[in-house]
Write a protein that binds this DNA or RNA. Structure first.
Lengths: 228, 228
DNA sequence: TAATATTTGTACCGATTGGTAAATAAATAA
DNA sequence: TTATTTATTTACCAATCGGTACAAATATTA
């Protein structure tokens, strides 16, 4: 189980980036588990859970709906994943390292301009992908909720800040690299593109098309600072 | 009871813009209601409900929480407002004509440029007002939810489209007035500023400050088309 | 085979959800 | 006063919420 920590202004949250159950301890032959074998694939179950959470949000998803979507009875879900919160965290982990991995990957582009272009344009396709719910799980799953869901709400907030901070850091690097003007405000730029991203997520969940969002992204890119 | 209708792509929704209970039928002296008088002020109760829905969302708000916030027992709430959905609609009506009235008002500015400046800058103050929940009710209250709340979800979607369409119309007018270039795409511009607005709402609910959002609005305005 | 370990299905838990029946209280009208 | 009308209070409803006890089922080990 690989995980790392980061600080939000208020609290510390565990963020699972990759999880493996029973990491084999340097043994070549799998030691064959003792009891009755699992009747389902954990990753497939998590992907099914992710899809429900993605379209209905954390609070809007009931365990009853999850049992139906995963094709697993409730006690098996609880045995495998702990509880609803933990299941959500595991599904969120798969989201970040799976369909949403392009966000972190965009920072690897050569210049700040290419980073934001790659990020926003891929986000447009991502948000309007017919095979997945519209919009971003991290934006939509718990923007508002009852007190009982505030832990998840806070965790999603922390994720948003985390990704934004990652872009800010990347733009600082761009200033050092000389592909952003020295007077550019890295944090401000990061907040700007995060805002565009989040707004496009809301737009996508409201029915905006790929072409419409491309128009938005294109307009947003017009105000990107250049040296030339 | 004054109300008007507008069409979304999918359905027709009633949108209450102003409501008066028992509009006095041209009588100068109030005819004094018959039974036991109401022990609470309806508008104050609606404002209290609005505040709870605003911070917790539609699904995240329970009737128990509402009874406490309004200081009214459940049967009185149901007698006065029908049910949770209707109560939300009434609170939403007060939101649109009250704290969020600046949105529609911004369209009265003389030029398209002034419209968007007025809109975005006022939105920043609105989103970060210490006396009200952060962000926009219409964006946050039901972005995702269970099936039982989908009517409210759809209605908020319709509101978003409605406001965006209003700005598009205003920008068409601006083209006719000559303060926007003829080649400007009014719908695209409207979707752009709606996206900024919605993104800033998410940012505000994630903790962004007034100054940070002003920076975002300022950047967003840089890509606004001009004739000069 | 028997013993052990683990997962499955059924059936249930208390708490909370939105909503309401019915008695009582407070006003006006006659 | 008495009748009528409306609002409030208490106490409750069925349905659903997240979560679990327990026994049957299915595997490995001895």
């Amino acid at each position: 189980m690989v995980q790392y920590y980061f600080l939000s202004v208020i609290n510390t949250y565990k963020i699972m980036v990759s999880t493996e159950k029973n990491a084999t301890p340097s043994a070549k032959t799998a030691p064959k588990p003792r009891g009755r074998p699992l009747a389902f694939n954990q990753d497939e179950a998590l992907d099914a859970a992710l899809n429900v959470f993605w379209s209905r949000g954390y609070e809007g998803t009931s365990m009853a709906e999850l049992t139906e979507a995963l094709g697993i009875n409730k006690p098996s879900i609880y045995a495998a994943f702990g509880n609803k919160e933990e299941l959500f965290r595991r599904a969120l982990g798969r989201y970040v390292t799976g369909p949403a991995a392009f966000v972190a990957a965009a920072k690897k582009q050569a210049t700040a301009r290419q980073v934001v272009e790659s990020f926003l344009l891929q986000a447009v396709d991502f948000f309007t992908n017919k095979d997945t719910p519209n919009g971003c799980l991290i934006v939509q799953a718990a923007l508002t909720c009852g007190q009982s869901s505030s832990a998840i709400q806070q965790e999603l907030m922390a994720y948003r800040k985390h990704f934004e901070a990652g872009f800010a850091q990347r733009f600082e690097q761009a200033k050092a690299d000389g592909d952003l003007p020295q007077q550019a405000d890295a944090k401000k730029l990061a907040k700007y593109i995060a805002t565009i991203h989040q707004g496009m997520s809301v737009q996508a969940s409201t029915g905006a098309t790929r072409e419409e969002l491309l128009g938005v992204a294109e307009m947003a890119l017009k105000s990107w600072p250049t040296n030339f």
